[in-house]
Nucleic acid binder design. Structure first.
Lengths: 127, 127
DNA sequence: GCTAGATACAACCATATGGTTGTATCCATG
DNA sequence: CATGGATACAACCATATGGTTGTATCTAGC
């Protein structure tokens, strides 16, 4: 039972979402998710210079979405699925807020006598 | 049973992720998910001009994450939870690719006699 | 220890982004 | 129907981003 590399990911939402906001980078993530990819091989798929692909990979790396590792004389790109999961959890939280609100609305409709005052929705959650 | 407004969202992943790559905009989404928000009230929360907040809302709107609607003399910002869900699904697909790969690896370990040739992982899915 | 393949990085350019201020438009209400 | 509160939008600036080319470094293998 080989220990799965616990990459203790720190999540920078700005960097992660910005990294995902580019089709080329999403395609790199997709390919690397399906199996680790060499950098030269990756760059062959895109209509841009090798250096440009390197930069895209660097952006993904800074966001914590991928890591690079030496394999012989080259380097391969591996994904960090944890970063994707953290992004998912963030979106889940937003969706949950929405769900909660819909829940409150239904509750009000079901119990028309309930006092509404005090349901100030603008409490500070922040961060 | 009131019909939920089916906003038939078209998903532009670039715009959606770019819109989410900013703390102020994520906070606006968060607040609006919990309950529709007036623009003036929103802008009071952030250390920037009213016009800057307007621009952020415009970015969210172009990404399809929020809509604006008149209410009396002002406008309110409402979220489009479908856009969030589509982003989630995209991330789900990436995670699934990873899961599939792990599954294939386990399968190979469990059945050591299997022929591996032909498992070229670089097939074109694109988009 | 040279050499060539692979990767890294710097300098540069064009355009996009996030902020500002100022002005114009819209609309509920006296 | 004039007014003022609320929103929209244009012009401008600084910095970030996505691409290029060119040069430097690293490493496996002869």
């Amino acid at each position: 039972m080989q220990a799965v590399t616990t990459t203790a990911t720190t999540f920078d939402a700005d960097r992660v979402f910005a990294a995902l906001a580019d089709g080329t980078r999403r395609d790199i993530v997709r390919r690397a998710m399906a199996g680790e990819q060499g950098i030269v091989e990756l760059s062959a798929h895109y209509p841009m210079s090798f250096a440009a692909v390197q930069k895209h990979i660097a952006v993904l790396e800074r966001a914590g979405l991928v890591t690079k590792a030496r394999v012989g004389r080259r380097k391969v790109v591996r994904t960090n699925v944890e970063a994707i999961r953290m992004a998912q959890r963030l979106l889940d939280r937003y969706e949950q807020l929405w769900r909660d609100r819909i829940g409150r609305m239904s509750a009000l409709l079901d119990a028309p006598g309930t006092d509404i005052t005090g349901t100030d929705a603008t409490e500070d959650m922040h961060r």
